[in-house]
Structure formats: C-alpha cells, structure tokens
Amino acid sequence: MSLRGHYKAASANVQAASFLVVRYGTRLCALPSDGVRGVLTKEEAGNGQTVAWVGVTYQNVDLAGLLSITLDTTSPDLRTVLFSNGHSHGAIRVDEVIGLVEVDREHCLPLPPHFQRVERTWVAGMIFYRDELALVLNPEWVLGELGEEVPREAGAKTIGAFTASVEIGKLC
C-alpha cells in the first residue's frame, strides 16, 4: 500500500494541486490524488473483474486501453490504483506507481488549443514531473462517465470545434 515517494515539484503553496503519477512504459499520467483510495500489489488486487477493498467494489478500468497503449503485465512494479470520484469506483492497473506530487496550480499547463475535440474533456492538462511530462487525466473519463467516444474519422481533413472542455482550474 505504500507509495514510492512524495515529490514536491514546487515550494509549499496553498494553491497546490496534488496528483498520483503513474507510468505506462515511458508515458506518465497524473490522477488527481483526492480520488485515490489505495494502491494494491498484484497479489492484493487478484485477477478478477472487480476488486473489493474496505467494503467498496472497484470495477476494473482499462486505462491502458483508453490511452491506446499496452499494460506491461510482466512489470515487477505493476500496481492497481483504487480510484473513485464518489459515484464510480475503478481499479486501474498501471506498470508502476511513481508517487504523489504537489504542483503549484500555476505550473499546470492546459492542453494546447490545437487539440479541439472531445479529448479536451479527457485530458485536463499537463504537469512536469522531474522534467518529464505527465498528462493530467479527467477522473470522469477514466471512470467511464463521459459516455460514448466520438468515432475516429479516418483521414478527416476538417476540424470541428469541440466546445465542452474540462476547466484546468478544476483539477489543477
């Protein structure tokens, strides 16, 4: 259940946002830490479709699939993050849990405006973690609360403005 480390990316600040940074291969993702209910080892999490922990049932969430990457099931550091937003509860397998990080909100970067579609509701922004970039993921997307995905338009040449967006200030 212990985390590797608690890294402060900036000096103590009441305006800090806190994230759990996880790794898939070389990619880092950041989950708002207030949704993290626990971190389990492979043995603790088991192999079922759900994880029951302290009276709550967490459904498996294929975050690697959402990110179009593959979970390294052979990783010795594989962990299951128990994550909840109060309504939905997800068990997210990751290659490694890097640690908790506190970031000054002013150091949270928004997703560049060139990203114009539904991804603006998936990715809340970006932070730097030890010089590496981590995508801050929207818990509602991670937990499957945003409904159906927009189908990919192969070879589409036009970009439609997608107006809904996650406010960076809400998560960062």
Binding site: L66, S68, F115, E119, V123, V150, R152
Partner: peptide
C-alpha cells in the same frame, strides 16, 4: 508524447 485525441493529425 502521445495524447488520446480525436483532432485529425493532432
């Protein structure tokens, strides 16, 4: 650094 995206070519 890949970003899940539906914006064509971005």
């Amino acid at each position: 650094i890949p970003v899940p995206s539906r914006t064509p070519f971005v």
